[in-house]
Design a binder for these strands. Structure first.
Lengths: 343, 343
DNA sequence: TGGGCGAATGTAATCGTTTTCACAACCGCC
DNA sequence: GGCGGTTGTGAAAACGATTACATTCGCCCA
């Protein structure tokens, strides 16, 4: 089923068929109608490979995430796919599994497939890989306030806003011994959240206790481990802020294992507001970061880069806000000391 | 950076370069070495589109799921991607969002990209779409014991095994009023699970109470709604089996809202054993269905279809087992009646 | 009347590979 | 020394579209 057959059937040249499909304005409506009829009758659809080989445009966008298994990402992927498809693009997702070798492979495959742009949401990004992409003039957008440089865009997220709201909330409930479990500090977005927490602490003249700030890895297991460590340090917090919801879920589990009730013994706040957050027991108070908006921003940043619409790009500098969503894992600090830890 | 440049640099023809890459056995090791050197020096990599245009092989496999946002799927995707990449294949995932129009689009895009095979995990699959694929000789594999027909494979999962284990478990704990919340009955795999439940009931000579069997949609919200309906029907079960873990999580939430304690007032068993199951409060007793194995089976079924290795296919008829994983949402039935429902 | 113009269409080059086929070189054997 | 059989290599024809350029045709105006 090639374009030739369509051409023959519609009694036109292949060029005309191609034009009716790609640039209808230059072809006579009457001819166009004939061509469309032939296309339908033969159920013709163009061969993408041939098409992009000659036109140089693949209509594919890449999306690289670190772990498709973290529920945050599928929601971003979904949003990205939706908007991409609406605009006639295909997407190619790759999960690096936190492995930088795998990351190199991802980039390689993206290049081989001639993606027209890549959105990157992961930390395993060596500079030389970025160079590889930049060198081939592939527009990039980082969803992680990561690298900056020419040809590199960033979707800006106001992480601090949500963190501050969360802190105000906890402080207004009387909490003073507030812990924080960060994500991997190789991730810039994780560093930013941690910093926002520390800043907020200082702004409220609360001394930082090192035992109350742990590094983790944005997984449930990691959160569980980190919280367990913190509780065993002998200085249990009355409230805890986690760098993402998965961590918060781990934290809740650790608290329960230690015999603590949430929120009576310890208040917990997550970050992201993944769908499941609403359904934890009790439902998780967390900071919402809209995945669909994030994905849309990413797409538009790329699309702008594609068509070289420099002016439109300015619009993308809007900052994505984050806000606290109060559910049931936070409550006023109890006056008496929490019960002794069960070991 | 085309093959020509490599050829020139290595002082051979383009044919030889192509051969050293794709079929090294027919080229003299000395020449091959020269060619590889040139390739490395120029950082050459072949243009995938040109390559697959002429060879007719895209090295892409499609994977269609209904909802990438359901944590079950990303784990399958990950497994599928891993094994595909190991075998030199790319994957193209598409989420249909339970929309059959979107499904048609998916198939269309898969065809346009000339995928060499498709794994399908969704119910929005019209027969005419299957025909479309079959008609173009695209091997298919269903991960849902769905359609059968020529050129269509199925990964066989023994859903009944896990269900039976779960039932034995609940019965041994003294439960007799056992409820079931199924997935959408358009999904064959959901029907099978429901049927296995009903069979087990009959096998143990327990009368079926219609109020204790609800249909839902494999989402948390759906589970919550269905359980709420069931509790309000005036005939609360002492134990409940859910068709998947997401549903189970919704069920737990509904139980808590109604003032019931899990597992003291009602025991709950899920299905799938998604990663999060371990971290619910309390940790969910559920039936494990290995996603990686599922994905691997799917891949191999496709791969077998690709190379036409009819004999190897027989091996794939092994049935994937499912087993109960006991955690903390089940306990012996309480002798006294459960407390009155809080409305 | 004829030349210029614009709109619609056709011709053919092009994209970067793979792969068929032919050819050359070499080997061993009769 | 000629001949069949390997082996390794190169020239050129695909693959199926897009698109630059050429052509045709009708129309208008000088």
């Amino acid at each position: 089923m090639k374009i030739q057959e369509v051409a023959r059937r519609a009694r036109v040249s292949t060029a005309t068929v191609s034009r009716t499909i790609n640039n209808p304005s230059v072809v006579d409506p009457k001819t166009a109608k004939r061509v469309w009829k032939a296309i339908e009758e033969l159920r013709y659809y163009p061969n993408t490979q041939a098409r992009s080989l000659v036109s140089g445009r693949s209509r594919i966008l890449g999306l690289i995430v670190s772990d498709i298994t973290n529920p945050f990402f599928p929601e971003v992927i979904k949003g990205f796919e939706d908007v991409a498809i609406q605009n006639g693009y295909e997407i190619l997702v790759s999960s690096t599994n936190y492995d930088s070798g795998r990351m190199a492979l991802c980039v390689r495959r993206m290049l081989e497939r001639k993606v027209e742009g890549v959105a990157i949401m992961t930390s395993e990004m060596d500079d030389h890989l970025i160079d590889q992409l930049a060198h081939r003039n592939v527009p990039m957008v980082f969803l992680d306030v990561g690298v900056t440089g020419e040809g590199v865009d960033n979707v800006r997220v106001d992480y601090a806003m949500g963190i501050n709201e969360a802190m105000e909330h906890l402080l207004s409930l009387g909490h003073r011994r507030i812990g924080f479990i960060s994500g991997p500090l190789t991730l810039k977005s994780a560093r930013i959240r941690r910093l926002a927490f520390l800043r907020s602490l200082r702004a409220h003249r609360i001394d930082q206790d090192k035992r109350l700030v742990e590094e983790s890895d944005h997984t449930v297991d990691g959160g569980l481990l980190a919280m367990t460590r913190m509780l065993e340090s002998g200085c249990a917090p009355t409230a805890l802020l986690a760098s993402n919801d998965l961590t918060a879920i781990g934290v809740m589990r650790a608290a329960r294992r230690a015999g603590l009730w949430v929120p009576q013994d310890v208040s917990i706040v997550g970050f992201d507001d993944i769908r499941l957050a609403e359904f934890t027991e009790p439902p998780l108070t967390t900071v919402r970061l809209s995945r669909t908006e994030l994905a849309e921003r990413a797409f538009h940043a790329l699309a702008a880069g594609l068509d070289g619409q420099r002016d439109q790009r300015r619009k993308q500098d809007l900052i994505l806000e984050t806000h606290l969503v109060i559910r049931e894992t936070t409550c006023p600090v109890r006056k008496s000391d929490p019960p002794a830890l069960r070991r």
